[in-house]
Design a protein around this nucleic acid. Sequence first.
DNA 1: TAAATATATGAGTATATGTTCATATATTGA
DNA 2: TCAATATATGAACATATACTCATATATTTA
Lengths: 124, 124
Amino acid sequence: MTNKRKSHQETDRCQVRCIHADRVERARQTAALPDEVIRMAGIFGAIADPTRLKMLLALQNEPMCVCDLAAFLEISESAASHQLRRLKDRFLVKARREGQILYYSLDDDHVRHLLEIGLAHARE
Amino acid sequence: MTNKRKSHQETDRCQVRCIHADRVERARQTAALPDEVIRMAGIFGAIADPTRLKMLLALQNEPMCVCDLAAFLEISESAASHQLRRLKDRFLVKARREGQILYYSLDDDHVRHLLEIGLAHARE
DNA sequence: TAAATATATGAGTATATGTTCATATATTGA
DNA sequence: TCAATATATGAACATATACTCATATATTTA
């Protein structure tokens, strides 16, 4: 089934048909590392959920704590915490502790850029 | 259950607790429109899947047809077509027909930017 | 017009994911 | 140290989603 090695000839007619073997070959050669693809997908996936996206957009203004975000989004603090963990694992937000309170904020400018471009694209 | 109107006072202790009512209020005022959030989430969601992400990365080079992409990704053409539809619906790719063949390519520079920033963030 | 090729689509299925609920951990103040 | 507060986490469940299979549509060629 997995014939990764076998390079496809022009107008190949094996199980995996392909019209432009040269393009497929170039795509293979310039492909990102599997690890990078997984990490990238994880980053975009973290932003892809409406709840998490609203969190990120809110954090564009200023840091907020878990219960602020829960109140803003009208979800439980548990749900907010779960989502924040995912955002933190993917380095989209970071937390700064001040006593009992954890202030979440956007991790860096990459995140801001992604949000800006995403919004611009959504408004097209 | 839904008390959207009721603005929260400082150190509110109702069902939906929130420590910084002012921040929640500002978040509410600057919040993107529900429609925009949904569209944005859809865009990021379209990129979030490893298969679709690899498609987009491959299309950074040059246009490719369905069966090229299927061959590159080692998935069925049906699966490729399904994924391409989602990418097209979200305006991440566009298709140009040339006879029987549909050449897919990135829709615009927003998409390129998103991929670039995403990759940069993944490599950090 | 009929056959072949390229792509699209609907239904079904297995897996991923977001939420809630109950509970655990961490920090502060009495 | 004990109670209160803020956040985190594991399990369970409902929904979303990515794939396969079968079939439909569209374009070209015989």
